[in-house]
Design a protein around this nucleic acid. Structure first.
Lengths: 347, 347
DNA sequence: GGCGTTTTGAGGTACGCAACTCATTTTGAG
DNA sequence: CTCAAAATGAGTTGCGTACCTCAAAACGCC
């Protein structure tokens, strides 16, 4: 009936005895400190591996004394998704302080590469880890690499800089998200032909561009009977998005689906409602907010494709902590999923 | 630019000084030990609250000495979903042993209430926490309540016993999952009329019954133009499911959708393929396995509705640990979502 | 005021490890 | 073989809490 023997809870002392060395030497090996012959290093490491020894994190954390500090570099402004991430960080405060972890929010203009780069440079040395909503730009890449070289653990959040040497990326694959949107549009409109409208904040934003790319990929290869209208750019603003969509709906009475790549969903929904076509048009947007939730429940919005902001906040903290402690990362746990949210599976 | 002051990392000693009592008294209050006047208790608690003091979990865990033991009571047999949960528990072993947590798997016949009840009774006293895939039955409920009364933390996993006094449920709302399936069937078949087939393992299984209930609810209220065929019971077996579906497809050439509530998806898919109708019929099933993944990629399966087994495994462990430590639970984190998985958002 | 009881204080030990010092041994180069 | 450098051992201290003991003080009751 039972299984798995309860391991005897070895300590460093046991490892030292079994390897035939002193505690000090085990400590040196464990922390890559110099002054140990390669032979001895190997012998100690083998003993550790053989016994699957894991240092007691509580003891290690306690002995370490110094508290760990992490910085979260987030965009200034009223982006609701980012605000949700910040809110979930706030909800973790008891969890964090019980572990003597300090998380500091640093708001900056992440869309200006030089400003972001300077902000990152100023962090060097002050933090054990940094999570950053990064723009993929040479200056930012260099700043990230400098941080890494200085021994700071770096995690990119929501938006990646794959060419940098950041330790981890916490966020979704936006091309796949765009493909998902495309597949849903194609599947939900059925077989009837018609026009599909697509509006984004800006093609210059990497995540938007990637989603558009994935969307078009699927539409072209699998739903070629649908006519994709030229991309509109609403700058993630409700008013502007509303105007653009209103005009478009007037011009094309045969629009059967609408994909909003970025923010401004409220404006788009308003245009749809005022044209009286909110139920006839398959409407797909991103992110779960109080507003998109309402739109899903009333049927204006058919699907919200989202990434879980709470998960991203916690994953970033956990990854930074694991990196700082030299613990392995549970990759399956920290992988952010592309959520398809409809009326009936709202969390 | 910056925000949040770094808290000064108070210790018990600081609390004692500020409250004007000794360390021993603070300790008594903190652990609800007797021998403290109500006045004093209040004063100490106020000081703790005022300073938002959190005991250092590392220090507490270290001082405690004794390792914590958790038991996972899981069904015997080859249920792939349960095996995935067990596999993810295995992947956590390093994480667990670094925290001196022992997790033991106990396989038993969870579908026989008396066997399950007896199994649970034998655990009393041996474990700090128990996670159990429970059947909702008076005997099981009583056994769970006994465990709770004995001070063991109890979490129901995947399948709940809401009438018991278990501390937490880790799993999805199966009615909502069934509703989601219904909405997807309705949306994906479009406006054309036709018959919808539904097959489950058994109506006697609570989770299957709930999914069927939710499914029918949505179909009746929103897609009444679709004709729901009588429920088939495949006992979660591939062979039997295949035979039932084959016969049904022969009999009804106008089936346009198929919902498999339980396991046996491989058999259903085989029947669909051999009838040559795998692309014409909207096929929705549950759980992500190597097989359903393959079926999604090749287009036989349109949607897999799933709950993340890794998440469930980790959430159960985290919840048990938080309960044992008297820490608050991050409810948003431990809430299991109903995942809609299609070809393009596979993890 | 004296008594027993309850409450509180003071202090110690232990947990497992990090980080350090300093003495001693081993090693390898000349 | 000698000697300096490298490697290792031995030991200490402290992290913040749990848990324990024993003595002292405060309290309530008659």
């Amino acid at each position: 009936m039972a299984a798995e023997t309860v391991s005897a809870a070895l300590t460093l002392k046991d490892i030292a005895r079994e390897a035939g060395v002193s505690l000090a030497t085990v400590d040196r090996v464990l922390h890559n400190r110099p002054g140990v012959r390669p032979d001895t290093v190997r012998r100690v490491q083998e003993t550790i591996a053989r016994n699957a020894f894991q240092p007691h994190v509580a003891a290690a954390e306690l002995a370490r004394g110094r508290a760990r500090r992490f910085a979260f570099v987030m965009p200034t402004g009223a982006n609701p998704f980012m605000q949700q991430i910040e809110a979930y960080l706030g909800e973790m405060s008891a969890w964090l302080s019980a572990r003597r972890l300090g998380v500091e929010l640093i708001n900056t203009d992440v869309f200006d590469p030089s400003v972001l780069a300077v902000t990152l440079e100023t962090l060097s040395g002050d933090y054990d880890g940094v999570a950053v909503v990064a723009l993929d730009h040479p200056g930012v890449r260099a700043a990230i690499n400098d941080l890494v070289d200085a021994g700071t653990k770096v995690v990119t959040l929501v938006s990646d800089v794959p060419s940098s040497r950041r330790h981890h990326y916490v966020g979704i694959d936006n091309i796949a998200a765009g493909r998902t949107a495309g597949a849903l549009v194609g599947r939900l409109v059925g077989e009837k032909p018609g026009k599909v409208a697509i509006i984004a904040g800006s093609q210059g934003l990497r995540d938007h561009a990637e989603r558009i790319f994935g969307f078009n990929q699927v539409m072209a290869s699998e739903f070629s009977h649908l006519d994709i209208l030229p991309l509109l750019e609403g700058r993630d603003e409700d008013d502007r998005s509303e105007q653009l969509i209103s005009r478009l709906l007037d011009k094309h009475p045969d629009i059967i689906s609408l994909y909003n790549v970025g923010a401004g969903t409220q404006g788009v929904a308003k245009a749809l409602t005022e044209a009286g076509r909110e139920r006839q048009i398959v409407f797909i947007a991103h992110d779960l907010t109080a507003m998109t939730r309402r739109l899903l429940l009333q049927g204006t919005l058919d699907v919200a494709i989202s990434q879980n902001p709470g998960h991203e906040a916690r994953a970033a903290v956990r990854v930074l902590l694991s990196l700082a402690r030299n613990e392995p990362i549970l990759s399956e746990q920290e992988n952010i999923r592309i959520d398809i949210l409809m009326r009936d599976n709202l969390p």
